[in-house]
Amino acid sequence: MTLKGRDIINIGDLELDEIELILDISKEMLPVARGEKRSRTLDGKVLASLFFEASTRTRLSFETAMHRLGGNVITITGQEGSSLIKGETLADTIRMADAYSDIIALRHPREGAARMSATFSSAPVINGGDGAGQHPTQTLLDLFTIREELGDIGKQNVTIVGDLRYGRTVHSLSLALGRMGATMTFVAPDMIQMPDHIISDLKGMGAKVKRTTDLKAEIPASDVIYMTRIQKERFAEEEEYRKVAGAYKLQVRMLDDAKKHMMIMHPLPRVDEIHPEIDSTRHAKYFAQAFNGVPVRMALLKLILEGE
């Protein structure tokens, strides 16, 4: 098994043992990611960091990951930073980045941009999020965070809350958790619940899943509560949005019956679905989760450029 030279476009492209390998190497990367140890593993290698859409965590953690491994970064941020604004196609931009670098990390507002880029680039492409499409490195860092905090992912009861209908990153996380044997509860109002085809895919792989609207009732049994942002633009009426968003907010007082080890995750940015008072509780793991973007992306860069 090797990931050398591979494109990482969709979490579904990775076999389970490949995911495990990435998580194992991520763990080894921790001291370097924290700056406690130095590494020259990717000395002389160049990452093209092409972010055609706003991103804080993903771009910074990709670039930090490359620097921590002794590699270099060339970067484009926003469409105005590139020739795209002059009408250049993404395909041409990618051909150029391919010529200048050893590996490409891409975020783009159009779905499928990463898959297309991979067909134009001989350098491997890592999808850093394409529109409402895939975001495989987010899924990997989510899995890594759960494994670091709680151990065996397959034994966890994961409650996923918020916009489950349109959030495709939540879909890929659920499918990965399902493959690993985790139990899942989807909490959302009906209009933004997890779509039937994902539920049937999950059941098809033998995962235990249920859908509900009641967040509070699920807290005591949860090992992980994964919160997501409910997007205002999904609702026709402002009033309706407020009602729904209000019902899916975590407050400190709701956590009295939570398991001691229960961890709260969020891909960030949050709006107000997690009250800031929770930040100082033992349950808050979303900042640790954001940090984990660095070791996970380091692992990917190393495995893709150097192999094991």
Binding site: G87, T89, M116
Partner: peptide, 10 residues
């Protein structure tokens, strides 16, 4: 919003 519906050589 798919990339295949944009002005790209695909």
């Amino acid at each position: 919003n798919c990339i295949s519906n944009q002005k790209e050589p695909i």
